[in-house]
Design a binder for these strands. Structure first.
Lengths: 336, 336
DNA sequence: TTGAAAGCGCTAACAC
DNA sequence: GTGTTAGCGCTTTCAA
């Protein structure tokens, strides 16, 4: 690997000082003669000079890099969030380092440490199942939370969705469609999202004068295997239902599969409502009726918010923005 | 944001020189007394000192960061690759900056430039449809290619799959199952992968004494909409077939959908063979028979290879490793 | 309009 | 065993 061309090289070759080159590179060339300016610029192009961001960061204390911490990019819920964040970041000249925690607190803390060392300007934190606020405070980097709440004071904002209202709307739709016995297969109850969705399910039933009974609620994890297993549990208890609200699309897909194996068809025999609207949801048979979360936008807005406070810096005025994004009921064919 | 604790602070407080602290931080403490060692370590913990990697990198010329350039993390083919790369990288103490190019040469070059500025130690490049070798040479960072060939000389290795052999095996399987008229819906022919897969399809037919005819080959892009559209094209030409080999799973899924709408069932009326084995493939109805690419492993091995040459540095001996990973025919229910 | 010089936080010789 | 010192490549006053 040959040595990088440095500013010094350019300066020497052009017979100017390194400060001059620096100013030109940073567009602080208000008072640099047009002549030298173009001369330097040409030389830079010719030599293929690329400023060393490391050195710059060392003095400016800005790396133009943000961290994105998510549980698992392989989970279909996250790629769009990541993409949204990356698009916004790169639009503003930022790069993003991504980190998969598998929802392990240890990994998460480790990543926060690494990102701190690398002096990222900020972190976007997409939800981890477990409580994990402990260490947010240990580092003084601004953090924006997605889909999760926390009170740590370097959390400068959050991008959320009203899970309770969304679920309530979804389940109400089921009721309007004439479903009478609606079960709920929940994800991990350690997550606030699962709790909120349960609350929404409950409220929808109550407000329509329908009984809310925990025997119709199964709590597990946000995985499709769980959806599959939950159906077996219902069967063992010989519980009957004509619709199931699922904690997310993955669960819904697992449930449909189990149902199909038992000769129970969706939506003919049982209606299924998912949550998230991941890419898969439109590909299944039948395509899923689901509550859409604006995933791309979540990532995008989170990055926007984060970069905003990074650039405003001091002027933070502690606004701690909370952005609540709209969900949308996407009606496809898994409900009648 | 309060100021970072620096090495100097620690040194001063401990009454030792900054060099001592540095050595301890870097485990070069062969000849540092156990006493000072533990004293410093405690102080570091107490003060929450975190080394500034920026400053370190400036002198070591190593950032412990690699770049991952992919077309689109939202395409179900890539998250696993990304995950594999990240897992390996973090295991070796590296972070990864990820970049989505949408297969645009311009974006791609821009990212290479940014990654160069950020002084990443190396880049993993997962295939972009278009030819794009142009600028690999402009920067002297080691590059590992995934699923794509190139001769640029800073390409230090590649992780590939034998697309031709894999396709040939897949199509041969179709033939063995008794399918007689096998069509092929290809992805973008601008990609080497599509060409190789076509070659494999052709060889399989030839070797089994079956006619190879371009009218049974449709060329498009690697998207599910294309699979859907291709079926309409076949219909317009009133071509009949009893099986379709699809350039990837997305195409297969689109094709199945179109077929289903026409009352043609898979695999009863037509067998479908996909490629990739993305997560979706097992979720569809029927679950897809497909040629599995070891995506996670591709990412993992690429990172491994890259980090290997980064750490060996000079000793590169120009090996330009080529790792060919095995594919596997996953038989599910879209073929009889 | 440009240059000199200090310093960002750290590593790595080389002294002591 | 530990300290001194010279940078790494850049930005940023302050002078000229």
């Amino acid at each position: 690997m040959k040595r990088q061309v440095t500013m010094k090289d350019i300066a020497k070759e052009a017979g100017v000082s390194i400060a001059t080159v620096s100013m030109i590179c940073n567009n602080k060339d208000k008072n640099i003669s047009e002549a030298t300016r173009t001369r330097i610029l040409e030389l830079i192009a010719k030599r293929g000079y690329v400023p060393n961001v490391m050195a710059r960061s060392l003095v400016t204390k800005k790396t133009k890099t943000i961290g994105l911490i998510i549980p698992d990019i392989t989970n279909p819920f996250f790629p769009e969030i990541a993409r949204g964040a990356e698009d916004m970041a790169s639009k503003s000249g930022y790069s993003v380092i991504y980190c998969n925690t598998d929802d392990k607190i240890k990994r998460q803390d480790n990543y926060i440490k690494i990102l701190t060392e690398k002096m990222v300007d900020g972190i976007i934190f997409a939800h981890s199942a477990e409580k994990a606020e402990a260490d947010f405070n240990k580092f003084r980097i601004p953090i924006v939370l997605i889909d999760r709440d926390s009170k740590a004071d370097n959390v400068v904002g959050r991008v959320l969705v009203d899970n309770e209202a969304a679920s309530m709307a979804g389940v109400s739709y089921l009721i309007q469609q004439g479903y009478k016995k609606i079960a709920y297969i929940a994800g991990s109850m350690k997550t606030k999202t699962a709790q909120d969705r349960l609350a929404g399910y409950r409220r929808a039933l109550m407000e329509h004068g329908m009984p809310y009974d925990l025997k119709w609620v199964k709590k597990g994890s946000y995985r499709s295997q769980w959806g599959y297993d939950a159906i077996q549990e219902f069967e063992k208890e010989s519980l009957s239902f004509d619709a199931i609200f699922c904690g997310n699309d993955l669960i819904a897909i697992g449930a449909i599969k189990a149902l199909k194996e038992k000769g129970i068809y969706v939506p003919k025999d049982v209606g299924i409502l998912g949550f998230d609207d991941v890419y898969l949801a439109q590909m299944t048979t039948p395509p899923l009726t689901t509550i859409r979360q604006p995933k791309y936008e979540m990532g995008y807005r989170a990055a926007e918010l984060l970069i905003d406070v990074i650039e405003k810096e001091k002027k933070q005025e502690e606004k701690k923005e909370r952005i609540i994004l709209d969900t949308e009921l996407v009606i496809r064919q898994s409900t009648k």
